[in-house]
């Protein structure tokens, strides 16, 4: 059985792995940090939150200060889907944000059965992810 844990991640209870819900890529062991199986990009926050007023003239511009905060963008190495972001102080180790008790998860879902699995999820396009 496969349990969707986030918009883009699921845990395969049989293989005990984190998987990408978009392209089925096997990411990392379920008892570990899924981020270890992803790619990371250190994004300048100004790219995403553009200055609204002129940074040449003003100290505060509606755009985060890139010396104070960065955006860590985590993406699937297979399909490039952006799985998670983390606004981080420069140099702060990324968080192990979801540390799952896999044995408890298996027991919980063994009692529930597969029909209880929620059906919300990403827009999965047929020719995406496997095409490379």
């Amino acid at each position: 059985m496969k349990v969707p844990m986030t918009e883009y991640l699921r845990i395969d209870l049989d293989t005990e792995k984190w998987e990408c819900r978009v392209c089925d890529h096997v990411i990392a062991p379920a008892e570990g940090n899924y981020k270890e199986g992803l790619l990371v990009h250190n994004r300048n926050p100004r790219d995403i939150h553009p200055p609204i007023i002129d940074p040449e003239k003003y100290r505060f511009t509606f755009s985060p200060d890139p010396d104070w905060v960065r955006i860590l963008e985590f993406c699937c190495p297979s399909c490039g889907t952006q799985v998670e972001t983390e606004y981080a102080i420069p140099g702060h180790p990324p968080l192990w944000d979801m540390q799952v008790d896999v044995a408890a998860l298996k027991a919980q879902w063994a009692a529930r059965g597969p029909s209880a699995v929620p059906d919300a999820g990403p827009v999965v396009m047929p020719d995406r992810g496997h095409g490379h």
Partner: peptide
């Protein structure tokens, strides 16, 4: 889940 936070807001 991959979405971004808000930007910043000065006076």
């Amino acid at each position: 889940f991959g979405g971004y936070a808000c930007g910043t807001y000065p006076l």
